[in-house]
Computed example of a mutant assay.
Amino acid sequence: MKVSIITATYNSESTIADTIDSLEEQTYQNIEYIIIDGASKDSTLNVIESNSTRVSTLISESDKGIYDALNKGIEAATGDIVGFLHSDDLLAYPEAISDLVETLKKGDSEAVYADLEYVSKEDTTKVVRKWTSGQYEQQKLRSGWMPPHPTFFMKRDLYLKYGLFNLDYKIAADYDSILRYLWVNNVTASYLPKVVTKMRVGGASNRSLANIMEKTKEDIQALKDNQLFWPSALFIKNVSKIPQFFKR
């Protein structure tokens, strides 16, 4: 199986080398690595060119934000499976992609996901929070459950069939897409009980109080748009994050 991995960058010079290094270390060979850059004004492109031997496609042009860039990546992809590696994230170990592919094959499923660690922005060996996903049950989505999107890999033809990221969402397009794929369209998913992605803290959704409020507003809209009862789902979704700070 060919795996297309998409990274969206914009002025990412301080973190992109680590991201690329984690991709370079992957033992899985059939990887198509696509980087979509939003016309960075810093040295991001120079860092990419100096550190990567596995980039298949590099596009640098202005866009409408990260979800627009990821959509461009999906459209450019030629792999059987598509996943995302954000420009300040890391693949946790060299066999991460191999394990994801093997789990998808064994489960005879259409998507696969795993666990995620939030790590310190300055020291990626320091775990701030661990997101343990658990086995997939579609009904969990009623209670606000979702897999960590950076660990979610799905067959490319399903992205084209069920739609790409909805650009009406500025922060929660990933949540909307997960609900659309798993809840509305019954995509089958398998769970790999390993941490495959490390995410630096300080992402767009929790960068400020205003962003948290906007994220909550968009989460509600995503639940409504995908025919899920939002008051209970949103409450449980937020409360369920609390134990993650103690699972390190």
Rank of each mutant, 00 (worst) to 15 (best):
E102R: 05
E102H: 03
E102S: 07
T103F: 03
T103H: 02
T103L: 04
L104Y: 03
L104Q: 09
L104R: 07
K105Q: 13
K106M: 08
K106I: 04
K106N: 10
G107W: 06
G107V: 01
D108K: 13
D108W: 07
S109E: 12
S109T: 15
S109C: 13
E110S: 10
E110A: 10
E110N: 11
A111V: 09
A111M: 12
V112G: 11
V112M: 10
Y113Q: 01
Y113V: 00
Y113M: 05
D115Y: 00
D115F: 02
L116M: 09
E117D: 15
E117P: 03
E117W: 08
Y118P: 00
Y118S: 02
V119W: 00
V119E: 00
V119D: 01
V119A: 02
V119S: 01
S120L: 11
K121F: 15
E122F: 10
E122W: 09
D123Y: 06
D123S: 07
T125A: 12
T125P: 02
K126G: 04
V127Q: 05
V127W: 02
R129Y: 09
R129K: 13
R129W: 12
K130M: 05
K130P: 00
K130D: 02
K130R: 14
K130S: 13
W131Y: 13
T132D: 08
S133P: 07
S133N: 13
S133Y: 10
S133G: 15
G134H: 09
G134T: 08
Q135E: 15
Q135S: 15
Q135R: 13
E137S: 10
E137Y: 10
E137A: 06
Q138T: 05
Q139K: 15
K140T: 06
R142F: 09
S143R: 07
S143I: 04
G144I: 00
G144P: 01
G144C: 03
M146Y: 06
M146F: 09
P147E: 03
P147R: 02
P147S: 10
P148K: 01
P148G: 03
H149A: 10
H149K: 08
P150A: 04
P150E: 00
T151L: 07
T151N: 05
F152W: 14
F152C: 08
F152E: 05
F152S: 05
F153N: 03
F153Y: 12
F153D: 06
F153K: 02
F153T: 03
K155R: 15
K155N: 15
K155M: 14
K155P: 14
R156S: 13
R156D: 08
R156P: 04
